[in-house]
């Protein structure tokens, strides 16, 4: 391991994971490729979803890859930022909605 956990050059080596587990790696990349093909959703819509998820997962490689992919597909910076807000809203909502669990517990124990 070098001085950094993350190296931008590693993104290009993603395909190498297949070398140590060929069948699973190949199946994964086949699946990945199929998922991003044009379907009921356009490739552009899928790129925006991927960008939002990349942020909620806080994956630097995915943020790098899908920012470029969105630019290539003509997505505007306003659309990209809105997509990230969608991710952030769901992520924070998922935290906050657990507040109900806390409230239920408090109400039961100390209501």
């Amino acid at each position: 391991m070098d001085n950094n956990y993350y190296d931008p050059k590693d993104l290009k080596k993603f395909g190498d994971i297949t070398e140590w587990s060929e069948e699973l790696g190949t199946k994964y990349f086949d699946y990945y490729g199929k998922v991003f093909e044009e379907g009921a959703l356009t490739a552009r819509e899928k790129a925006l979803i991927a960008l939002a998820v990349a942020h909620t997962e806080q994956c630097p490689y995915c943020i790098d890859a899908y920012t470029v992919d969105c630019l290539k597909r003509g997505v505007t910076k306003e659309q990209m930022m809105e997509a990230i807000h969608v991710g952030a809203a769901i992520k924070s909502g998922a935290t906050l909605v657990h507040g109900v669990m806390m409230m239920n517990k408090v109400n039961k124990l100390d209501g």
Partner: peptide, 20 residues
Amino acid sequence: VYNPSGAFLPGDQTSMEKDF
């Protein structure tokens, strides 16, 4: 004619044409 506005390559021509 579409060419990218920055340091990235153009996306798929057919998809871009549909969007345009």
